[in-house]
Design a protein around this nucleic acid. Sequence first.
DNA 1: TAGAGCCTGGACAACGTTGTCAGATGCGGG
DNA 2: CCCGCATCTGACAACGTTGTCCAGGCTCTA
Lengths: 349, 349
Amino acid sequence: MPETIRRADNLSGTRYGNRPTMKDVAARAGVGLKTVSRVVNGEPGVTPETERRVQDAIEALGFRRNDSARVLRKGRTASIGLVLEDLADPFYGPLSRAVEEVARAHGALLINGSSAEDPDREQELALALCARRVDGLVIIPAGDDHRYLEPEIRAGVATVFVDRPAGRIDADCVLSDNYGGALGGVAHLIAHGHRRIGFIGDMPRIHTAAERLRGYRAAMEDAGIPVADAWTSLGVTDPERVRRAAEEMLSGPDPVTAIFAGNNRVTVTVIRVLAERNRPVALVGFDDIELADLLRPGITVVAQDAAAIGSTAADRLFRQLDGTLVAPERIQLPTRLITRGSGELPPAD
Amino acid sequence: MPETIRRADNLSGTRYGNRPTMKDVAARAGVGLKTVSRVVNGEPGVTPETERRVQDAIEALGFRRNDSARVLRKGRTASIGLVLEDLADPFYGPLSRAVEEVARAHGALLINGSSAEDPDREQELALALCARRVDGLVIIPAGDDHRYLEPEIRAGVATVFVDRPAGRIDADCVLSDNYGGALGGVAHLIAHGHRRIGFIGDMPRIHTAAERLRGYRAAMEDAGIPVADAWTSLGVTDPERVRRAAEEMLSGPDPVTAIFAGNNRVTVTVIRVLAERNRPVALVGFDDIELADLLRPGITVVAQDAAAIGSTAADRLFRQLDGTLVAPERIQLPTRLITRGSGELPPAD
DNA sequence: TAGAGCCTGGACAACGTTGTCAGATGCGGG
DNA sequence: CCCGCATCTGACAACGTTGTCCAGGCTCTA
């Protein structure tokens, strides 16, 4: 066991590698502890001469304030947590950037992590962030039960849900108008003469997926078109299964002439499938994708404004912290139909 | 001044919204403070009966350990910082995801922020993370002088630079083989018969840009092709200027027949410019771009493995913390030429 | 020149946790 | 029946910072 002992020794001996503390600075500058604190925090009541001495000592020792101690004392961390679903999804880039921008404007740091769509991991992460005493949380929920956050919210952690609503608790949330967007996108296809329209989307237990499906159904119903079972494919996310689903819709006796793709990953795979076929099939995707305008045809999409969602959410979070905000609210941001060609193809009957 | 006073009052009064502490839990469970600590940390030496009482009290009060205090006491935060250049750049998605994955495997949280290519902001961010006492830093440098990190590194903050080397300090870094990648890409164009090849890239003060330029020049020299001034355009990043640069190269008496694009943003804009022209121009881009295979022609790229870079960097960081690693090292990861069509077009002379 | 008032600086406690160490309790053996 | 040992528990200090409060020195006025 000598290794284990050495390792433990090693770790506990590290102790920030013996960083200088305010006490050290004070000793070196020949002033009191609190005076150093005042200089570090820019508080008034220090002679320029004394201040210079302290600054010099700070410089010489390479002192850096220990924020853990500061947080412990002050009770606010000036940091907020962001729990996203997948760091690598391009949709979340602009979103987290927008959140960071707002956080920065409030002098707060952003701590984030991704849940990988796993509700347990989401909970683990959110609670770990709470243990660090983040002032607030922006969560893109993976699960559908967020009662585990109740004690935290009661304790004053500002909380805003994004992209999907919170489950079983009453909390602020900022979403896109998934229903309206999907309805508009499908109606667009119908307006271009399509009647047999396929829908490929995620599991309906995911709120956005359910809403988009609802929008699809509503558009079809508004147009008086009965939806055949074979036209909708749900719970399909991985490329292989999307591919199979698309191919099934496009073959058979009554093939669809248009497809509505429920999210950007689906859209990309459907583009691939359609590219392999000669018969033109119309396509509208939910979520914009990069370079969509360079493809032939360009891809028509229902675009969400990820940056606006992020900044709205972060804004509300800080307003909760201000006390400006009282009751939780659900905010829906509009989507935008961007026509580029693929959604305007006529049915190839 | 009454407002100021009230605001301060307000803030200092908040104090985590009166969260329960271990002391509260201990009181409720009728045990000592340290016993609660033992239960929370899963230390041995607590009767199951006592443990249950404590657990019940924790549950009832909604207690959550205050990690700030824990960190203050223990000296390690189990969190690492990631300073990237732009959260929204798709190249950094997989990279930060990979870093997070490794961090998670070591039980650490990831805190990140972006520098927006601004050296001052990079420094501010890195030092803010150090003040939070992150155990280590992964930095994608924006600046070229990192001596400000010396005290931190001496104090034991593990540090790994990524994508670009550290400036004026000796530190671990993990990079792509920018020189070799560019050389290979340009050689590929030359092998397909091109001699007048343009290069559009970022400012040469950025290491990657300089290396790629060097690769371009080396490939040309190897082939015995003198490079005309008009063929290289440096320090060009925003779409408008890239567009102008590309158009200039493609017109004039001696237009280029191929373009090597120095990064993904440049590539995208060049694609747009080329799409507007009838004469086919070959294109090879550094960095892969999404959907590159769906364009006609597909875009040939020199791809970096962002995930591998991220996980290699994070790996080294934790090995520094282990003490497994001693001397700083520069690690170069190979790039991969992915041929998709655009780089194989013959010169249209 | 003495006293009032202001300005600067420092001693001390507290934040919530963990490590140390000693006390209490229970059990078995002499 | 008592002692020793093992097991479990709790008191206390310490981590580095900030807020409170007081002491001492200065200036300005009467």
